[in-house]
Design a protein around this nucleic acid. Structure first.
Lengths: 296, 296
DNA sequence: GTTTGTTATTTTATCTACAATAGACAGTTT
DNA sequence: AAACTGTCTATTGTAGATAAAATAACAAAC
């Protein structure tokens, strides 16, 4: 197999939920842009919808025949791209499993375990290397540097520099900048979550990511925004892995975000810095607490 | 061809210059470590040396038969790794050639032009993408973001944050830290160069890189050190490409480095920050001047 | 003028194969 | 017995091939 048709399968599934609501089907081109795929793929999707007799399709007359059933969807395992599969697999190994720093990483072995070719694994490792957790020895293996205390400290040091700068930049944005509206929206989402924190606290990870990204984007510096990818992936997997006290931790974090947002709105640099530092301090604590070994 | 034997050829050449001086040949293992290659490669080198009748080789008795001739060396074109070739080629295209931002990059075309397989080009692009000059559209092409004024400003913004922090960290190192000796050595190199600036100014690029790396290393933060790769590659190719007034520019920079070094030695945070800012300001000016188009 | 049918072409994502290189182990020499 | 060498195996680096997906072109249909 040269290429899995995961793009098709994933778009097909999304298309099913999309059309379940709407009655009339839009044009091919329109469907393509709303699903984020090309016309070739859209036509493949339409062909399959017709085959399953979910829609009738003759030229530009497309009509719903029946509502999509759960059985119509492709299984979710088949909709993730290879890169996602490899990432999940790899992160599970190095975060959950006992992966000691210094361990060697073998491309072929990794590929076999995941059930994929070496090329994809290789490309993943190259992309992943920018996160500073692995390192390549040319003509030889990769070395796992490990999710150590040092790593967390170095990561948060940069994060704090960047976030303080971004926050100051945000507070200095002109009053008619669209970011202020986004911030209002963000505040509403936080208040919503806080009101129903007992049932919603698991969704905090995603909200957290969106909030900080909003702040960082105001820096309009590609290096700051790109660096946030590292934070995102680390915290994303970290949340999945370390669930101790997450209800309280997240509730506290939502409150801190609200204070941070309020400070931004005052546009007072001193207040912003104070709220930002406060939140960053507890984020660091949370991260450090989850790392067992007291590394040098 | 599955793999070029550039490691062998390069190591062979270095071995020729190495043994030209020494009389006796060391053991295979020793030779391997001093050339930075494995025993397999060392044995291939020895076999060729014997074939060319430069040495006699029987088990552990190895003796020089004649001095190496220029003709014995492999041509330098054959000693660069594929990654280096691709990098040079690509940088020439995007820096020297008129590469407009927004241009599409085609893996296959690039590979054909360079005379290599697509895999290597692809891997290069993935590695290179962390420099923020190109961006990938999944399932589609790469987009050149271009070496624009914006890029230079974003790059120098981060550089200045990191360097100020590193410089402050350096000044705070304990007095017996080995970095102080390295700094003395670095100072001597600068004085040497300044004394013969008319003939030596072309070597400044390399000295510059070494000096700043020394400062950054004191941060012992992998993200700061890694980021310096971007600075290095940009300035490296930038020097090759923009030679206007380089004699004066470099002379001035050497002087600034000496002031910077002197400030570090005082260990006075205020003096350090002042000298550091001074140097960073002129480095930024130099970079910006070389970018023609006044981008938004 | 927008949408579709049709068809062809281009380009990426991924697999497989193979030479170069690294590394391990056992045997040999001093 | 320590250092070195002969031999073998494992792994990486790279090329080439192939299916999925994107892109393009254009006439026909609405």
């Amino acid at each position: 197999m040269a290429k899995q048709n995961t793009v098709f399968k994933d778009a097909f599934n999304r298309c099913l939920t999309l059309i379940a609501a709407a009655e009339a089907l839009p044009s091919e081109l329109e469907l393509g842009t709303s699903l984020g795929v090309s016309r070739t793929t859209v036509r493949a999707i339409l062909a399959r919808l017709k085959e399953l007799e979910i829609i009738s399709w003759d030229k530009r007359t497309k009509a719903m025949l029946r509502a999509p059933q759960p059985a119509d969807f492709f299984p979710t395992e088949e909709t993730s791209s290879l890169a996602e599969i490899i990432e999940r697999n790899f992160m599970r190994r190095i975060l959950a499993g006992g992966a000691e720093p210094g361990m060697q990483i073998n491309e072929l072995e990794l590929a076999r375990d995941i059930g994929t070719g070496t090329t994809s694994v290789r490309e993943f490792l190259i992309r992943f290397s920018r996160f500073g957790l692995i390192e390549k020895r040319p003509n030889s293996h990769w070395v796992l540097k490990g999710f150590t205390r040092d790593f967390a400290l170095e990561l948060t040091e940069i994060r704090e520099m960047f976030e303080l700068r971004s926050a100051a930049g945000f507070a200095a944005l002109p009053g008619d900048h669209p970011a202020w509206r986004d911030l209002d929206e963000m505040e509403a989402l936080h208040r919503d979550m806080l009101a129903n924190i007992d049932t919603r606290y698991r969704d905090f990870s995603e909200l957290d990511e969106r909030f900080h990204l909003l702040v960082h984007r105001s820096s309009s510096n590609r290096f700051i925004i790109d660096f946030y990818d590292i934070i995102t992936i680390v915290f994303h997997y970290h949340y999945q892995w370390n669930k101790a006290n997450d209800r309280e931790r997240n509730a506290r974090a939502v409150e801190e975000h609200l204070e941070y947002i309020a400070a931004l709105k005052t546009r007072d640099p001193v207040a912003v810095e104070h709220a930002c530092r406060q939140h960053l301090r507890s984020a660091r604590e949370t991260l450090l607490q989850s790392i067992q070994q007291p590394e040098t």
